Simulated scan of single mutants.
Amino acid sequence: MATQQTIDEIEETLGHVPGWMEQIAEPASDHSWGIFRDLLLGDTELTPREKALVGVSAATAMNCGYCTYFHKEEARFAGVSDAELSEAVNVASMTEYFSTLLHGNEYDHDTFVAETDAAFSHLREQGMAHADD
């Protein structure tokens, strides 16, 4: 288990030490809390909404019920609507679908990169760039 200082910090932050955090073996427990705290709760380049949507997408793609529940609750806490959550799951599903298609057919990576670059160049030329670009 983590050091007393880390246990105290977890309790202060989350209101208790979740049982699953007690499962983290030494010497990784203090470090694991630091990663959780700094990436999920800390001030980073991504907003809390963005981090939560990334988490939901990754969790659903991995088919992890634990992570899906956690990150959906994180997203709701960050103000993400159910419609946005559904769309994030759909984007993750689409990504996984096309990844399977590409890998299963052993599509040439260099060709894929060239075609993708050409497509995004065309989208930019057509004025399809996002407003926050």
Rank of each mutant, 00 (worst) to 15 (best):
A2L: 05
A2C: 03
Q5Y: 01
Q5F: 02
T6V: 10
D8P: 03
D8T: 03
E9A: 04
E9T: 07
E11A: 07
E12W: 08
L14R: 05
L14G: 08
G15D: 13
P18D: 03
E22W: 01
E22I: 03
Q23N: 12
I24F: 00
I24T: 06
E26F: 00
E26S: 11
P27E: 01
S29E: 05
S32A: 15
F36D: 04
R37I: 04
L39F: 02
L40A: 07
G42D: 01
D43Q: 14
E45V: 04
T47C: 06
R49V: 09
V54R: 10
S57T: 15
S57I: 07
A59S: 11
N63R: 13
N63G: 11
C64T: 11
G65N: 07
C67T: 01
T68R: 03
F70M: 08
H71K: 03
H71G: 05
H71L: 03
A75Q: 05
F77T: 14
L85E: 06
S86P: 03
S86G: 14
A92G: 09
N105H: 14
Y107W: 09
Y107C: 11
D110E: 14
F112K: 06
T116K: 15
F120T: 14
S121A: 13
H122N: 12
E125Q: 08
Q126T: 11
A129D: 14
A129R: 10
H130W: 12
H130V: 14
D132M: 04
D132P: 01
D133P: 08
